[in-house]
Write a protein that binds this DNA or RNA. Structure first.
Length: 498
DNA sequence: GGTCCTTTGAAGCTA
DNA sequence: TAGCTTCAAAGGACC
């Protein structure tokens, strides 16, 4: 990662990054974020990478794939395995959690009976704790909490896994809390039960509470819809049993997703935004603005999350959720249907999207506050036709935006947008999306697990300094204008780059 | 009801 | 192995 290397040039970039994107809520977020300890972040990330590499077994993936057997079988074995492993691994690699509040030994308030996870309740920032609960508890992946924390003695060392078994991660326990409906069935004290006990043969808790990652193959993944014993449903709701749909094990959440989960509510509250797309943009920038330590928490959480996921679903592979992979492992009908759907989606995109880089051009270029410049489809949240029409996005009428011409495509607006927010002084990390190619390609690893160095090219360091400075001058602060702000920044950037 | 948008990261696939 | 693709969450908007 180029950014990781220290150097004068990097510094420039770093400064820019910091100032550059303040979104709505950022006024409040203060300079603390801007003050950036980017350098430290870079260092920390580097260390995390090492740690991650050391802790994780390189063969885990292979093992996982190689054991597409009965999950039930695994569960049984797994249970036995845990018994043994937990003993031998106590005080293992995670005996010294990097974060004090970690692992989350307590059932987070939001998931306790009578407590809710309302946005207002989710004010706890990444670095702040309240009620003695870990600040990240709200991140509980697989959503709202379908699982309660497990005891701190469970093993997590995946590197030792040479077989099918995945070790339960004590730290991961905190990620799972009880589902709203399950709370009543499991008392807080039960949250201490190990996953091995909590989960049934199919990842479903004996009480019928399924793993949060398990969701019906169709429809939106509403948490309450998840489970309730859909996967290998034990004796759960009869109603659900009637549903022919088979569950889909979702991918474990990555660091950013975890961050989003926690901060979304906060951003919504601060910015009064409702549109996820806009919120996510903000979150993306905030993510880059996080200090190394803060990001490290999420990377660590994500890492453990993956480990837990592997333990719970040893036979699962990300491929299972790929449309392409539907034929093989997931030969289930539901998956096939799902695959068709996905395939259709992709085909549709290909049809309408000749330009690989694609969609959301107007949005990205003009921003939310310049919607008058958007093409019709973009206003309707559909794919930008300007791009499709070959020429690229026409420049906005605004003089300020006049310079914004459609780049030949290799340099989509999206790319530019990314470049505004890159934190990374000293090269730290985040090369950010700027490196993304086409619709989603990411080429640079960002942190710990982020791929072996060099695997992906990091282009973030290319971020123009001038652009960032300009952005810093912007004074949009109204939280309500966050989205617009974001867009505004983009526009600025574009102007500058031109 | 399905899709889009938007973000970053992980993992799978392909050449 | 580099590069690309897909999916993960979220929820309003749109068709």
């Amino acid at each position: 990662m180029p950014q990781l290397s220290s150097g004068g040039g990097d510094d420039l970039g770093a400064n820019d990054e910091m100032i550059a994107f303040k979104d709505e809520g950022e006024q409040e977020e203060k300079t603390q974020e801007n003050a950036f300890t980017e350098r430290d972040l870079a260092d920390l990330k580097s260390s995390l990478v090492n740690e991650s590499e050391i802790n994780q077994s390189p063969t885990s993936a292979a093992v996982r794939r190689g054991h597409h057997g009965e999950q039930r079988v695994f569960q049984d074995k797994h249970r036995e395995h845990l018994d043994g492993v937990s003993k031998q691994q106590d005080g293992g690699m995670y005996k010294s959690p990097a974060y004090p509040g970690y692992p989350f030994l307590m059932l987070p308030d939001p998931y306790l009976p009578n407590s809710s996870v309302s946005p207002s309740s989710n004010k706890v920032s990444v670095v702040q704790q309240s009620h003695g609960m870990h600040p990240l508890t709200s991140l509980l992946p697989y959503s709202n909490d379908h699982f309660s924390p497990s005891p701190p003695h469970l093993p997590t060392d995946m590197s030792q896994k040479t077989g099918v078994h995945r070790h339960q991660s004590q730290d991961l326990s905190g990620y799972y809390s009880l589902p709203p409906g399950g709370v009543g069935q499991i008392t807080p004290s039960m949250s201490w039960f190990p996953h091995s006990l909590m989960l049934g043969p199919s990842g479903v808790h004996p009480t019928g509470i399924p793993h949060p990652a398990i969701v019906p193959s169709s429809g939106k993944q509403e948490h309450d819809q998840y489970d309730r014993g859909m996967y290998m449903k034990p004796q759960v709701e009869v109603k659900r049993e009637k549903e022919p749909k088979k569950p889909v094990i979702k991918k474990p959440l990555n660091a950013f997703m975890l961050y989003m989960k926690e901060m979304r509510a906060k951003v919504i509250a601060e910015c009064t935004l409702k549109e996820s797309a806009a919120i996510n943009q903000i979150l993306g920038r905030r993510w880059h603005a996080l200090t190394r330590e803060e990001q490290a928490k999420y990377y660590e959480l994500a890492r453990k999350e993956r480990q837990l996921h592997m333990q719970l679903y040893p036979t699962w592979s990300a491929r299972d959720n790929y449309e392409a992979g539907l034929s093989g492992v997931a030969g289930e009908k539901s998956k096939a249907d799902w695959g068709k759907k996905k395939r259709r989606k992709r085909e549709k995109q290909q049809d309408s999207n000749t330009d690989p880089g694609s969609p959301k051009k107007c949005r990205a270029r003009f921003g939310l506050n310049q919607q008058t410049d958007w093409c019709g489809p973009c206003r309707r949240k559909k794919k930008c036709i300007r791009y499709l029409q070959g020429g690229g996005c026409p420049s906005p009428s605004s003089s300020d935006l006049s310079a914004i011409d459609s780049p030949p495509s290799p340099c989509p607006a999206r790319l530019r947008l990314y470049r505004q927010a890159p934190p990374s002084p000293r090269g730290s990390p985040p090369p950010s999306p700027s490196t993304r190619r086409s619709s989603h390609t990411r080429s640079h690893p960002r942190f710990p697990s982020e791929q072996s160095a060099g695997k992906r090219a990091d282009l973030c360091h290319l971020v123009p300094t001038a652009t960032l400075e300009l952005s810093a001058k912007q004074t949009l602060c109204s939280s309500a204008l966050s989205a617009a702000k974001v867009a505004g920044l983009s526009l600025k950037v574009l102007t500058e780059t031109h």
